[in-house]
Design a binder for these strands. Structure first.
Lengths: 143, 143
DNA sequence: CTTAATCTCTATAGAAATTATAGACAAATA
DNA sequence: TATTTGTCTATAATTTCTATAGAGATTAAG
């Protein structure tokens, strides 16, 4: 499952992408327009900033803005930042590999193989879909 | 993430599939051989029985056995029984559709579309992989 | 008909993750 | 110096996941 936190992060990023030309955007604007709990959103934005996606300015006239081009930010990378591995079990993750707690022998684990396929299919989709791709969807609808 | 419960369920089913010709199998055998907490496994087996995958006999000489042919039981169906929808967000589930709590407008939700792709890719894999396919993996290795 | 073996049922507890909030603090502008 | 805004630390509330305890029901065997 995609967590609410990750979904909020994507919503916030898409909002910032749509308002890129307007300079700094207030947390409260994003929270209100995207209906995200304000304090929860703060934590998410800090996280995205730490990961180099956003910049911020404090104080009066402050706010947040996207640092990266929406065409460079994949959905997969955002989900990994917030939720961790895309893989359904840790032993098939590329970037966060870990032995499964309950695993007896990884080499003969039947479940592993099918889950690896799921991971790869998921990563193929999410790592090749960018914020700009998502934004286009509604731009297209508006035309 | 695949839950431990679902993983245990698959392990138990595979164990039962491999021992199909031996008649009734004890819970404690499965628990011990697959290193699954005994009491937790009991609950899982009841669940699988309720879902028509297993039959059981109580009392001395009792135990569990597969009812279905391993070639008829898909990995996807087992995961759905235990963990629920394969879809990463409820609004793209086929069998368990539900509006997302935090969704403002499903028709213009950008996230929905990419998550639908993920759901479809996942379902394609898991619904076309059966217990018998998994079993073959190690049979093949043993040859 | 008694005993031992086995699955079943109900309840609950413990642990971890997720979601959310409160409030003091720091920085910038006017 | 007051106001606006992001930052930091702590914690609380909720939910989900994992696991256990123990009494009950059923069957086979002697």
């Amino acid at each position: 499952m995609l967590s609410k936190k990750a979904k909020y992060a994507l919503k916030a990023l898409l909002y910032l992408a749509r308002h890129q030309q307007e300079g700094l955007i207030l947390i409260s604007d994003i929270a209100e327009k995207e209906r995200i709990p304000r304090k929860f959103l703060e934590a998410i934005l800090v996280d995205l900033k730490t990961n180099g996606l956003l910049q911020s300015v404090r104080g009066k006239k402050g706010g947040y803005a996207l640092v990266k081009n929406p065409a460079e930010v994949s959905v997969g990378s955002v989900i990994r930042m917030i939720d961790g591995p895309l893989a359904p079990i840790p032993c098939v993750s590329h970037l966060y590999y870990r032995k499964c707690d309950e695993c007896i022998d990884e080499a003969t684990c039947e479940i592993r193989i099918v889950m690896k396929k799921v991971r790869d299919a998921t990563a193929d989709i999410l790592d090749s879909t960018f914020l700009s791709d998502l934004d286009k969807i509604n731009t297209f609808l508006e035309e």
